[in-house]
Computed example of a mutant assay.
Amino acid sequence: MTKMDGWSVEQLHDGYAQAHRMDRVLYDSETDHQRIVVFDSAQFGRVMTLDGVVQVTERDNFIYHEMLTHVPMIAHGTAKRVLIIGGGDGGMAREALRHPVDQVTMVEIDAGVVDFCREYLPGISDGAFDDPRLDLQIADGADFMRDTDGGFDVIIVDSTDPVGPGEVLFTDHFYGHAKRALAPGGILVTQNGVPFLQGDELTGTLRAFQTLFADTYAFVAPVPTYQGGFMAFGWGTDSDARHVDLATVERRITQIDLSGDYYTPEIHKAAFALPGYIKKLIP
């Protein structure tokens, strides 16, 4: 992370950067895995960066967390066991626990991320860490996936980009273990970056998915602080859940009184309508 005159400059992409003014730095520390910084931003509220890259903000996190959770869970319709790989800020667990699940297992490699998010970004998890249905495991996500007995209805890979600790979560071996960990009819979804700038991430994931699943595709959402336009999410399943009709989506949302600030029945369906430049990335 580069600091210039009180600004946090993110240089994730070659020749392109974004900057956030740090009105107040609340936390700046190195863990065994990465550097964590939390600061106040006039535009986005509290912001967390890992190794200088924005991971979550108070203001726009709802888009990312709602879409990566509700799309697969509503499409599935009867998910009771959910696995989240990553997601140390608790936002994904927050949204998953809005569903009538029996258990949400969350595997986060860095206990420091969980601890400081509970202290400095409590609104992101909004009580999720205290929900008795949450099984929090501090462990390497790849190791957990390899060793788990499985039986998960939905697996959500809420990873960082494929560098450092997150790199192993983008491998064929990891996806193969994830497929084995799904219950029949289960759905695997993945964070695949911003395809306008990181197209290889989506292509690589879906190429691996095509050897594993009967139905592979992607869905999208625009998240303001993830620079470069639409963010893409990988989709893999042996079911026809992607094609659930609008009336069924509406009924399932109504049955559990699920209201989203971004996610709606219409958005659920529209998220699979990909722009041409993203469709071309699907092998």
Rank of each mutant, 00 (worst) to 15 (best):
4 M>V: 12
5 D>G: 13
5 D>F: 14
5 D>I: 10
9 V>P: 12
15 G>S: 13
17 A>T: 11
18 Q>D: 11
21 R>P: 07
25 V>G: 06
25 V>Q: 09
26 L>C: 08
27 Y>Q: 05
27 Y>H: 15
28 D>Q: 09
31 T>P: 09
33 H>W: 15
34 Q>C: 11
41 S>Y: 07
42 A>F: 10
47 V>H: 04
48 M>S: 06
48 M>W: 08
48 M>V: 14
52 G>L: 10
54 V>W: 04
55 Q>H: 09
58 E>T: 02
59 R>Y: 09
61 N>E: 15
61 N>I: 03
63 I>W: 09
65 H>A: 04
65 H>D: 08
66 E>N: 03
66 E>P: 00
68 L>M: 15
71 V>N: 01
72 P>I: 03
73 M>K: 02
76 H>T: 06
77 G>Y: 02
78 T>G: 10
81 R>S: 10
84 I>R: 01
84 I>A: 02
89 D>S: 06
96 A>E: 05
98 R>C: 00
99 H>G: 03
102 D>V: 07
102 D>C: 03
106 M>V: 08
108 E>A: 08
109 I>G: 04
111 A>P: 12
118 R>F: 01
125 S>Q: 09
127 G>I: 01
132 P>M: 04
133 R>N: 02
133 R>M: 01
134 L>T: 00
134 L>I: 07
137 Q>M: 11
138 I>L: 14
142 A>C: 10
144 F>K: 11
146 R>Q: 13
147 D>F: 05
148 T>R: 08
152 F>H: 12
156 I>P: 01
158 D>V: 07
165 P>T: 11
166 G>V: 11
166 G>M: 10
166 G>P: 05
171 T>V: 08
177 H>P: 02
179 K>V: 01
180 R>T: 12
183 A>I: 01
186 G>P: 03
188 L>K: 00
189 V>K: 00
190 T>F: 06
192 N>Q: 09
194 V>F: 05
196 F>H: 14
200 D>K: 14
203 T>R: 15
204 G>R: 03
205 T>Y: 01
207 R>S: 14
207 R>G: 12
211 T>K: 15
214 A>K: 14
216 T>C: 12
218 A>I: 02
224 P>E: 09
224 P>T: 07
225 T>R: 10
226 Y>A: 08
227 Q>T: 14
231 M>H: 15
232 A>Q: 04
235 W>F: 09
237 T>D: 00
238 D>R: 03
240 D>C: 00
241 A>H: 05
245 D>W: 06
246 L>T: 10
248 T>Y: 03
249 V>R: 05
250 E>G: 03
256 I>K: 10
260 G>V: 00
261 D>Y: 14
261 D>C: 09
263 Y>G: 03
263 Y>V: 00
265 P>S: 07
266 E>R: 13
267 I>Y: 11
270 A>N: 08
270 A>D: 07
271 A>F: 04
279 K>Y: 04
280 K>Q: 14
